[in-house]
Structure formats: C-alpha cells, structure tokens
Design a protein around this nucleic acid. Structure first.
Lengths: 221, 221
DNA sequence: ATATAAAGTTAGATATCACTAACAAAATTA
DNA sequence: TAATTTTGTTAGTGATATCTAACTTTATAT
C-alpha cells in the first residue's frame, strides 16, 4: 500500500522529470517544501518498494511501476478539477486545493464515474493533459507565450503551475483557455508584451506572466 | 488542526454516544478496531485539545466543540453518500467506503455545493439524518422493525450500520427506503418475521435483519 | 464477601514522516 | 588547481499513531 505522503512524492517526481526523466533531491525538496534529509530518506524507502531507482548522490528516476502510480494520481487530480468546474460550478481558481485532497481517495469507481460524466476529457481546466486509465498522456503541441514572436496569432491552451492568485489575475483580464491572441509588441528592455484579443487591442502582460501561459497554433478546420 | 485519525475517533464517539452521551473505551476500541491502550492515549490527547471530557476509568464524553466537529464530519460523510447516489449513479451499497475517505476533505465549499445540488437533503441514502451547517440533526421518529407488532403497517425509513453485504441482501429482496410493510407473523421461537410488501405476501426475514431496519408510521397526508 | 471476569491503564516498542546539526561529495568559479 | 558554493548524506531527535505485555480498577457472579 502506498501512503498519501508517498503518493505526493511520486506525483512531484512525475511532474518535475526532465528530458531524462531525472529529478535532483534538491529540486524535489524545494518543490514539496520538505527538507532535503527527509527527501533523501524517503527516496531510499521508495527505492525499497521499487517505485524509484535511486543511487546516492545521483538524481532520482521513477520506475515503470512508480510512473504508473504517479500517472494514476495525476489522473485523479485532473479529473477531479474538471469535475468540480464542469459539474459543480467551481471556478478554475478554486479547484486545486480540493483536488489535492480528493486525488488520494482509493476508489477507481469514483474517478471512472467522473470520467464518464465528463465524457472522457483530455484536458483539465488549466489545459493540463489528463492521463487515461493506462497512464498514457496525450501531450499537446504547446509552447510558452513568451516564446512567440511579434505578429503571431495563437490560442491560449494552458496555464503552468496555476496558483489561484495568478488565475484570478487572468480572470480579471478576461483571459480564458481558447482565447485567441495576437502578439503586438515585445518591449526589448523588460520583455513586457502587448497583446490583442477579443475587443482588447493593447493589453499589457509581463514576461513572467507570459512564461506561465501555454499556447497552440490555431487549428484550421 | 484536527487530524484524520482524530476525526475518526470523534465521529465514532458521536455515533456511539448513549443517553448520557457517554462511551466506554472498550466500546470505542471494538467499534474502531483499534486496541484499548491506543484508544486510552488518544482520549488523553483529545482531552488536551478540549474535544472530549475524560477522567481515567470513566466513560468519555464529547465537549461542545468535539460534538460540533463530529457533526461536521458526519455531515460531510452523509452528504457525500447522497451525492454519490443521486448525482453520480452509485448504488446505496457502494458509497460508504468512498464517503469514509471524502469526509476528511477540508473544504466547506465542496460540501456546501453538494448540499445545494441535492436541494438540502435531510437524510442520506440509508435514511440517516444529515446534520445541518450548525451541527443540528433532525432525528426522525423511527423505531426498529423488530419492535413492531403483528398487524402493524409501517414504512421502511432507515438502515442501521449498513454493511454492503446487508444492503445487497436488501436489494435482492427488493426492499428500499419508503417500502410499505405489514408484519404478518412473528415466529415465537426464533423471532423470524413474515412480512408483506409490494406484491410479496410472505417474505421471511430473520430477527437479526429486523433489528437493523428502521421504520416510521405512515404519514397520512 | 470473596473470586472471577471485564474494562481500563501504564510502560515500553515500532513504523512513518518530519526536523536540525554536522559532514561529504560534486559542481562551479576564481 | 584550489577555493567556494551547491547539492546531498548521516546521525540523532521528536511527534503521531499503532502495537504487546503486564498490571490495576471496576463490575459481576458465586
């Protein structure tokens, strides 16, 4: 049996994994807000349970089993977020904390029912992909808004590490997933962007904000 | 902050409380499946937090705060059960385990939304009363089916400590909350009952089963 | 009224998950 | 390459929540 605490470590490892699928202990420690020695000892215990591959002083890698468990938790989290927004009337800025708790509920039936009620969604309310029952994720072809050039017209498709403060900020600017944006100008000295969308012709967004927004090319049907 | 474990003790104390609102350590221990010494030490710690009144060798009593906390958890549990049955298509025999976990979610908003979506229900799918936001419970005028005399016609209104096995058994007999029953016969030697309801004229139920069923007098409108 | 049974407590052990302090290895920079 | 910084580990501590073994108190029965 995997504890709630262990599940949180696995989820973090899944989210933080870079190209090689590796994560440093320090990175994990900062992400979880747990001190490094605690993380080190947890890595040993997860390695004993065959959920991670761990050699002292080397970065940590999820095993196949660990990856599957992690994907399952992320699936539960994202389905819950989507259910709360679509079926219960919550705002996208209100669901993270609740999903953080509901994701640990041991009942496949519950999440399968959510999945069905939502007609098997591929993305959560923040545009993050939802793993299917087998742990497979359909990564969309997204890049950061901060990487777009002047003149590009793209569609807002995701939000990174969405804190509720940031999401409320987006609400105040009327920026939603699906909004079609054109980059009008990039301020050379601080990277501030001027964007147009809807009826707004010159909305200003900081570079920091643009790094947290994911966009897709428009789909020509 | 009250831990999940502590919440389970409070809930148990609320449910087990007799006339005086007291519960013995042994009774609690058996109910929770936790050994007595563990229960004793938890009672000390809950007393330190002012959630119970506890004197060694005496039964335990919930304080006003403790009672309020307990009622809140029971409210969450029963609202969840009702939501799962009414809004998500689960059977009444499938929801206890899930609610047992969801009840610990820290978010009043979640349960208030359920409450609203269900139009502020007074009872859960097993006929147990749902405390309101202030912890008040509307106890219905119920007695056990085993206490009814021959010839009485009453309405099934609740099920006690509903294990899924027992609920599946009721399903198989087509017994539901609201079913109108007449006691046709009480077998003197073992208390077996013969009941009529729907088109069934002589359904047999053991005394043990009848002790787990709660009934109300018919409401003459 | 004493013996026995039931209920309850104390003491000491264990597992999990967190911490700090001190040290060691690896990476970076001068 | 040597010094410094960053990263990571070890050792030891503490809180929580569980257990068993041994003992005590209260209740029950003969």
């Amino acid at each position: 049996m995997i504890s709630q605490t262990e599940e949180n470590y696995l989820k973090a490892l899944f989210i933080l994994a870079n190209e090689n699928g590796e994560t440093g202990v320090n990175e994990l420690s900062k992400f979880l807000g747990i001190k490094m020695p605690t993380v080190t000892s947890m890595m040993k215990s997860l390695a004993d349970k065959n959920l991670v591959r761990y050699i002292t002083y080397k970065p940590v890698i999820l095993t196949v089993t660990g990856k599957k468990e992690a994907a399952s938790i992320i699936r539960k989290h994202r389905l819950t977020e989507m259910y709360l927004v679509e079926k219960m009337g919550f705002g996208w800025d209100e669901v993270h904390e609740i999903a953080e708790q509901v994701e640990h509920v041991k009942s496949n039936a519950l999440f399968d029912k959510m999945d069905e009620a939502l007609d098997f969604p591929k993305f959560d309310p923040h545009g993050a992909p939802i793993p299917d029952k087998n742990g497979k994720i359909d990564f969309p072809d997204q890049r950061k808004l901060s990487e777009c050039k002047v003149g590009e017209t793209i569609q807002l498709s995701g939000v990174i590490h969405s804190s509720d403060v940031f999401l409320k900020f987006l609400n105040s600017k009327n920026l939603k997933l699906g909004t079609i944006l054109t980059v009008q100008l990039i301020e050379a000295f601080d990277g501030t962007r001027e964007l147009s969308y809807d009826e707004r012709t010159a909305e200003i967004l900081s570079e920091i904000a643009c790094e947290k927004l994911l966009v897709q090319n428009l789909k020509h049907i």
